[in-house]
Simulated assay, not measured.
Amino acid sequence: MINHLMVGSNDIERSKRFYDAVLGVLGAPAGVLSIASSGHQRVFYRHAGSSFGVSQPINGEPACHANGGTIGFKCESAEQVKAFHDVAVAHGGTSIEEPPGLREGALGPMHLSYVRDPDGNKLCAVWRVPAAA
């Protein structure tokens, strides 16, 4: 259903360094920097059938984060959830909410971590604990 997600940034080079490191934890290759015909800079990441982009706003206004919005990245293990968090913080992100770890909820047990990127976008790393056989 979802083709891609894109967030805005006021500093594309800073965002590229951040997302190259953080999305690298998930196995994504370094982002590809491009210049749109409008002249604004963008960087794109493609991995495992998903696309994620970071762009200077086309309208020329400052980028800002969505209040209430969260971008969730699927992880392969609890350790990857923790690594995503730790690499994000080491590259200019901010740890938010509870520390990375197991949460019980309506959708079953899962490991989660939440961070904000350097532009304030809320990111979640999630690994759903497989159901017992």
Results as ranks from 00 to 15, higher is better:
Q80F: 06
A28V: 05
D11T: 04
R46A: 14
A63G: 08
A131W: 01
H40P: 00
L123T: 01
C75G: 01
A21M: 07
A88P: 09
S55W: 15
V87Q: 13
G53S: 09
H111S: 11
H4D: 03
V115F: 00
A125G: 04
G93L: 08
R42E: 09
S95W: 04
F73A: 00
T94E: 09
D11N: 15
V32Q: 09
R116K: 13
V25R: 05
M1I: 13
T94S: 12
S113V: 08
C64F: 15
P62E: 03
L5K: 11
G49M: 10
K82A: 15
A133W: 15
E13L: 05
H65I: 08
L5M: 13
S9V: 06
P100I: 00
D86F: 12
P29T: 09
V54N: 00
R103S: 09
G101D: 07
A125M: 04
Q80R: 11
H91G: 08
H91I: 08
L33I: 14
Q56H: 12
G8T: 10
R14K: 15
A83D: 10
F73P: 00
G27H: 11
P57G: 09
V32L: 12
E76H: 08
A28P: 07
E104I: 13
A48Y: 05
M1G: 12
M1C: 01
G31R: 08
C75R: 02
K74Y: 12
P57Y: 10
S15R: 06
G101W: 06
D20F: 04
L5Y: 14
N67P: 10
N67M: 13
R116D: 10
P99W: 13
A83W: 11
K82E: 14
M110N: 12
G49P: 06
S50Q: 13
G108L: 02
E98S: 13
L123C: 06
A36F: 14
Q80W: 09
P57R: 10
S77C: 03
A132Q: 12
A83F: 11
F18E: 00
H4M: 06
I2V: 14
E97S: 11
K82V: 15
S77E: 07
V89C: 12
G24K: 02
G101Y: 11
T70H: 06
D86R: 07
L5T: 08
E76R: 09
S34N: 08
L33C: 10
P109W: 14
V7P: 03
N67Q: 15
L33T: 09
T70G: 01
A21D: 04
M1Y: 11
N59A: 04
A90M: 04
E79W: 05
P100Y: 05
R116W: 05
V129A: 01
